[in-house]
Amino acid sequence: MTLIYALAIAAYVGCGLYMMLSRHAVRMILGLTLLTNGAIFLIFLSGRVGTTTPPVIPQGAEALAADAANALPQALVLTAIVIGFALTSFAVALVLEAHRSLGTLDVREMRDAERLGAPDPSPATSVKTHG
């Protein structure tokens, strides 16, 4: 079970890394999402999957049952999902804005930051965007 789980994480991270290396900005975001999910699964696995006994102290008892599930990874995963969602939304909005104002999604063609104050002025340098 753990081995299958670990292999699944490896597949996620591998696909994510491959997609991140793409020059297409949208593929990059998809890669980031896959990588985030891989990390989230890894947190789950590091909390030891297996037992399903809820981590609730029964009435009258003082401590948790010995075989109770570990609840901490769920808290960590929830936090990571919320953060991952926020950052992915921002990244999507940023890429959308890039598509609108730069007219391309190919990161090789995005050279506007590089042109700003470049040591070797090309004709395109005359386009002033800073103020």
């Binding site: 940023l94 890039a98 990161v107 506007d112 930051a113 042109r115």
Partner: peptide, 10 residues
């Protein structure tokens, strides 16, 4: 600006 969007993406 264009340069800012580009910089932020990187």
């Amino acid at each position: 600006g264009k340069a800012q969007i580009d910089g932020a993406l990187k």
